[in-house]
Design a protein around this nucleic acid. Structure first.
Length: 507
RNA sequence: GCGCCUCUAGCUCAAUUUGGCAGAGCGACGGACUCUUAAUCCGCAGGUUCGGGGUUCAAGUCCCCGGAGGCGCACCA
């Protein structure tokens, strides 16, 4: 009975498709509604195998050979090649592709099979054969329309290539293009492998609030939202850092969180307003321990997921195997300036060096900020790495512990690969009084108009007063890590649905 | 925010250095075809050339304003 209904559905699908992509409500809604109401479409389909399994099991079959084995598969029609009394269709499921081969004499409802369209979801069953040309196929005995495609999927060979359309209609991009499927699958594997890497080392995965009364943990402009029942503004988190360290205070000695953070800043090929960060905290460890951990994590991901530690990023070949080069911020900046730089370097010399690097100083900038700016302008993008850049000024590191050999610096490092910051880590500041002083300095900058500066977080200071053991913390931008491993040029390629400007309402 | 570039049929793209009837392929629709691989062949339909204004006998094309997007810079991860 179902197939009679389908014959009508199919026709409607094609009518809808002709109008489809132009958005106007007419074609879409009339087409779509009828699909939903049609009682002929099945609720489930029982498969016996999938494309990749069948290909593996029948690798040895000879061209023209016909097996008696009967299998059923389901997937999306990628191509149809009707040819009179026979017809071929390429079916894709999540494992791969397999050909459906229909014959008028052997396939029930052959005429309907021959009228399948690109994008239709079908289930089909029949014997496994190899065609005379050697293509593994299912000689279809019966098939079912699972869902007709009511909209065009673009050019059958090229799909859609318009960059904006690819991100706006990611379902079409994923359907039509191999690369986004590969990249998003790799992303899933990177996240999963990172979890198991950390769990094997005794880290406990936790979840901390995304709605913060005070945004903290990073220098960034937050999104503001409002809770009605509490009648209070809340901020989408810019980092989970402070809550994670409070868990360490509470006795979780090794914790991590992989989650979304939100920063109300510009959008670029390397920045999305929401992105996924890994943060981990390890008690009784210092930043040197995390240098090793970071090297191991990144190189083991590369080996496990790519089979190599050599990746190409931005046209640069990067060797990810440990150990990585280690240097200090002061050494890099001194090299760029051509003279020895320290926090005692006269301000005029630093300002001049920053100007030479193409940056502008602000009156509120101290020596530490100026040195960091010089580094970012003159050094960072030229570092192929991986390189561990150590020992940042206190002024630009409000949550990091002072360096054991120089209290004007902190025990903080960043990892730079292919000119981009991948990770940021430090020995955590444990002294509540120092933390309060640093917060107050931030708050002063905030009052002076720095929208990225932190506010004083009393809850966090109180937590430190209960006692934070010596602890080291690490943050890694997972999107950037996936970009590195996938060789992706844009962060949008590694995010399923990147932030786009909403389409203005029609009319 | 600034600079450069892009926008034509559902999709991918043409439309002469120097303005002259808006076209093709794919897809859709109708038909032929028993081993195809982006099948092939015949036929048919499909357009606010991103929007608005201007110059001109005539604008997809030239000029101005606006919109959206991409890239670079700036800010950041």
């Amino acid at each position: 009975m179902a197939y009679l209904a389908w014959a009508q559905v199919g026709v409607r699908a094609r009518q809808a498709r002709a109008l489809s992509d132009g958005e106007p409500a007419g074609g879409r809604s009339s087409g779509g509604r009828q699909f939903c109401e049609d009682p002929g479409l099945p609720y489930r389909y029982e498969r016996s195998s999938d494309a990749a399994t069948l290909a593996r099991e029948h690798a040895g079959m000879a061209a023209g050979e016909e097996s008696a084995e009967r299998e059923s598969v389901a997937g999306r029609v990628m191509l149809v090649r009707p040819q009179g009394r026979i017809a071929f269709a390429t079916l894709r499921d999540s494992s791969g592709e397999i050909q459906l081969f229909a014959k008028a004499g052997e396939t029930e409802r052959f005429d309907e099979f021959a009228r399948l369209s690109i994008g239709d979801w079908v289930g089909a069953s029949g014997r496994i054969v190899k065609t005379r040309k050697g293509e593994l196929s299912i000689l279809v005995e019966s098939f079912e329309m699972l869902a007709p495609a009511g909209r065009s999927f673009g050019d059958k060979w090229r799909g859609i290539t318009d960059v904006e359309l690819r991100y706006r209609r990611r379902e079409v991009d994923l359907w039509a293009n191999e690369e986004p499927r590969r990249v998003l699958t790799l992303r899933s594997n990177v996240i999963a492998a990172t979890r198991s890497f950390l769990q094997e080392r005794g880290f406990v995965e936790v979840e901390t609030p995304m709605l913060h009364p005070i945004p903290g943990g990073a220098l960034a402009r937050p999104f503001v939202t409002h809770h009605n029942a509490l009648d209070t503004d809340l901020y989408l988190r810019v980092a989970p850092e402070l809550y994670l360290k409070r868990l360490v205070v509470g006795g979780f000695e090794r914790v991590f969180e992989i989650g979304r953070v939100f920063r109300n800043e510009g959008i670029s090929p390397r920045h999305n307003p929401e992105f996924t960060i890994l943060e981990l905290y390890q008690a009784y460890a210092d930043y040197g321990d995390l240098m090793t951990l970071t090297e191991e994590l990144v190189s083991s991901l590369a080996v496990g997921l790519l089979g190599t530690t050599s990746v190409i990023c931005d046209g640069r070949t990067v060797e990810l195997s440990a150990p990585w080069e280690r240097t200090t911020l002061m050494k890099l900046v001194s090299g760029a300036c051509g003279f020895e730089v320290s926090l005692d370097t006269p301000r005029e010399r630093l300002e001049e060096a920053l100007r030479n690097a193409g940056g502008l100083s602000r009156a509120s900038d101290g020596a530490g900020k100026l040195i960091l700016e010089i580094y970012e302008k003159a050094c960072e993008s030229g570092l192929t790495g991986p390189v561990i850049v150590k020992d940042f000024p206190v002024e630009v590191s409000p949550l990091a512990r002072r360096h054991r050999d120089n209290p004007a610096l902190t025990e903080r490092f960043e990892v730079v690969i292919a000119g981009r910051e991948l990770a940021n880590a430090f020995s955590e500041l444990t002294d509540p009084d120092d933390q309060r002083a640093r917060f107050e300095k931030q708050a002063a900058a905030r009052a002076a108009g720095d929208v990225e500066a932190m506010a004083v977080d009393e809850d966090y200071i109180r937590a430190l007063e209960y006692g934070l053991p010596p602890t080291a913390g690490l943050g890694i931008g997972m999107d950037r890590l996936v970009m590195l491993l996938a060789g992706a040029a844009s962060i949008r390629d590694v995010i399923a649905f990147p932030t786009l400007r909403p389409v203005p309402p029609a009319g």
